[in-house]
Amino acid sequence: SGVGMPTGSYVVPKTVWLPAMKAKGLEISGTFARRMGTIQMDVTFTNKAMQIMTDFAIQFNRNSFGLSPAAPLQLATPLSPNQTIEVSLPLSTVGPVMKMDPLNNLQVAVKNNIDVFYFSSLYPINILFVEDGKMERQVFLATWKDIPSDNEAQFQIKDCHLNSDAVSNKLQSNNIFTIAKRNVEGQDMLYQSMKLTNGIWILAELRIQPGSPNFTVS
């Protein structure tokens, strides 16, 4: 679920990426979002130092999905002591690629007039799910057959108090599309597809036992 977000894709609440004590008084917190097909890095800068901060810039290290700022970091005014400013930085996925561990790790450098600071953050994979990730049913069936068993992983999702239609709607607003739903011996089996920004498809099966809050995703 997402606070205050009955529709639209899920946005994780902002967390502190760089505490002020590690960055000469600059505190950076943020989150990632996908809005209308655009990936955005929502960042809050707070000046906890005694001096004014100016000349901000941001740079990403190469990363698994080529995330890169699509525009320079623009802070409208210098940041006075105790001032906070919020910025939404649009991101592209055409930057340099290097496989990271974990896959969704992003290393960031931020500079201001005082120094250069570095931090890492983990972005949620749903920001990479594109709007045209609904696979044709025939293609889905053929592709599913071709997936080697080594490429299948299974996870338990605990404590989810939603029925399969609610789950399906919530996932669809995150570009995870339900291709088919079948009821076998009382349990709902949902077949779903999604496509990453780099063109890689993911196929999923979600098993929901009515009355049980524990799901199995393969």
Binding site: R137, Q138, L141, W144, I179, A180, R182, V184, E185, Q187, M189, Y191, E205, S218
Partner: peptide
């Protein structure tokens, strides 16, 4: 909806996954 045989194919898939 046109019966393209895919409905049946998904039913078979779900059943085979349930009883491998």
């Amino acid at each position: 909806e046109i019966d393209d045989g895919l409905d049946e194919a998904f039913s078979r898939l779900a059943e085979s996954r349930n009883n491998p």
